[in-house]
C-alpha cells in the first residue's frame, strides 16, 4: 500500500517538473515565517513592531502573519491601549 501511495507523484514527475513559482513561494514563505516566529519567540508583538524588527515590507508581514494564523501558527493576544493594533503571539503547541 505504501508503494502505491508513493507512486502517483513519482509517475507525474516523469512528465512534469515542479512549479518554479511554487518553489519561489515556498522559499519566500518559509523565510518570513522563520523571521516572524523569531520575532514573537519572547513576547507578543503588533504588526508595526514586527515590521520594525524584521525590516520586511509592511503588507507582506500582515499577509504572512494572517496566513500563519489561518494555519494555526500564531494567535491574537490582546489589543493595544489605543484600540489600534492587535498583539499576536505564537500558538502554544500542546
Amino acid at each position: 500500500m505504501e508503494n502505491k501511495k508513493q507512486k502517483t507523484v513519482d509517475i507525474l514527475k516523469e512528465t512534469r517538473k515542479a512549479s518554479e513559482n511554487g518553489k519561489i513561494r515556498v522559499k519566500e514563505f518559509m523565510g518570513i515565517k522563520k523571521k516572524i516566529k523569531a520575532s514573537l519567540k519572547l513576547e507578543s508583538k503588533t504588526i508595526p513592531q514586527i515590521i520594525d524588527e524584521t525590516k520586511l515590507d509592511a503588507s507582506f508581514v500582515t499577509y504572512s502573519l494572517m496566513t500563519m494564523m489561518k494555519y494555526g501558527d500564531v494567535q491574537v493576544d490582546k489589543i493595544d491601549d489605543d484600540d489600534e493594533y492587535y498583539f499576536y503571539k505564537l500558538k502554544e503547541v500542546k
Binding site: 500500500m1 502505491k4 501511495k5 508513493q6 502517483t8 507523484v9 513519482d10 509517475i11 507525474l12 514527475k13 512534469r16 517538473k17 515542479a18 512549479s19 513559482n21 511554487g22 518553489k23 513561494r25 515556498v26
Partner: peptide, 23 residues
C-alpha cells in the same frame, strides 16, 4: 493546484484515505 505544486508528495504520504492521485 498543480501550477503551484512542487511535487514533494507530502500530501500523498499523509492522506489517511489514499485519496491523492497525481495521475
Amino acid at each position: 493546484d498543480l501550477d503551484n505544486c512542487i511535487l514533494c508528495g507530502a500530501c500523498e504520504k499523509v492522506c489517511p484515505a489514499n485519496s491523492i492521485d497525481f495521475t
